[in-house]
Amino acid sequence: MRGLKIFSLAFFLYLALSLYANYFDGDLREIIYSRGFEPSMLLLGTVYALAFFSVFALGYASRIKLSPAFLAALFLVLSFHDFPVIPILAVLVVIAYKLRINLFRLFPHISLLVALLIPLSLYIVIGVPFFERSLRYELVGPLVLAAILAVIGMAYSKVSLQWKTLLVAVYSIVFFFGTFRSLVLLVYLSYFLIVYFDYPHFRRWLLALSAVPLFLVLGMSGGLNALLVRIGFTFLVFHNLVRLSLPWGFFHGALLFSDNPRHLVASMFGASTNYTYFFFGQPIADFGILGALEAFLLGVLLYNSERSRESFVVVLSLMLYSLDPGVDAFVMLFIVGTLLFFSSESNAT
């Protein structure tokens, strides 16, 4: 139950912070509602967040072991969010699975290297978002890919803890210049999970080390109040998605398969930027109350990830990362792909 415990701790901490920002601090509340939303008690959003979390926990507790055939089919379906390139790559991944090749385990060091080369190449050729804010959303896709590859490399590589500590420091600087605090947090999440599971004698240092990503995230956010505004606004967006999507959904799958789901959500409310929409925002916005089935599946995926340390680190890191920005097909591809590769090793064994 350790995966559910860790996720629950993060989930309820996020929920508590979002409700504090919306209810108990008048100054924060005024800023949050300055973007045009009508004042709301957020009761509907809170009820559905708790209800979907209960279904998520039920999926985890069901202890259902997903078949490789189901994972392969789900992987191929999710790949259609970016036709035709991603579906072609997805077919190659399924072929690798059929050959019992775990690409993540086979090339972890290449993954670590590519995770550095992608953002550095973009910064040299296109520009650095830290200095040119207009580039921020232009580079978001490749930067997310780089951060996920860094997580995979950290989880599967056998390099020493000293090297992983150095790498996470380098990644945090690289993604700091990309201006996405969630990506800085993502690489630290994988690092902390690796230390927690593989180096129990260093666990006592994790609390002190957590100050590093905390200060980075606060600095990138503009301070604690600005971070709370971000969290509170994300939950306000989620609440309005719930309000508009009941009972049968608003996007009917278009949000999950969008190549820019956060922009799609923002455009729904008349904005031209990107809106994050909370972990359960996409299931509800796409499918309404039937989105509970997706929440259940997410819980099952988390349970299945615990069958190996590497898959657990990758899947749990990605789910914790998705608490604020929300779930999308791109992140789901890596979650399902991780489990698919592990199943190929299980079958071989």
Rank of each mutant, 00 (worst) to 15 (best):
L92R: 12
L92F: 14
V93M: 14
V93D: 11
V93L: 14
V94A: 10
V94E: 10
V94M: 11
I95K: 15
I95S: 12
A96V: 04
A96D: 10
A96M: 10
A96E: 12
K98H: 11
L99D: 00
L99M: 09
L99A: 05
L99H: 04
R100C: 03
R100N: 10
R100T: 08
R100Q: 13
R100V: 06
I101H: 05
N102D: 15
F104E: 04
F104R: 06
R105L: 11
R105P: 01
P108K: 01
H109Q: 12
H109W: 08
I110V: 14
I110K: 10
I110P: 07
I110E: 10
S111F: 15
L112C: 06
L112W: 08
L113Q: 09
L113V: 12
L113W: 11
V114C: 02
V114M: 10
V114T: 11
A115L: 09
A115K: 02
A115P: 07
L116S: 11
L117Q: 04
I118W: 10
I118S: 07
P119T: 07
P119E: 03
S121P: 04
Y123R: 01
I124C: 02
V125I: 15
V128P: 05
P129L: 00
P129H: 06
P129S: 01
F130P: 08
F130Y: 15
F130G: 11
F131K: 04
E132V: 12
E132P: 04
R133L: 12
L135H: 06
R136M: 09
R136H: 09
Y137Q: 15
Y137I: 14
Y137G: 14
L139A: 08
V140S: 15
V140C: 03
V140I: 15
G141D: 11
P142M: 05
P142E: 02
P142F: 04
L143G: 04
V144C: 01
V144Y: 14
L145Y: 06
L145G: 05
L145K: 07
A146P: 07
A146Q: 01
I148N: 03
I148W: 04
L149T: 08
V151A: 06
I152T: 04
G153V: 00
M154K: 02
M154I: 11
A155N: 03
A155H: 05
A155D: 02
A155R: 05
Y156Q: 06
Y156W: 15
S157M: 03
S157L: 04
L161C: 05
L161F: 09
L161M: 12
Q162L: 14
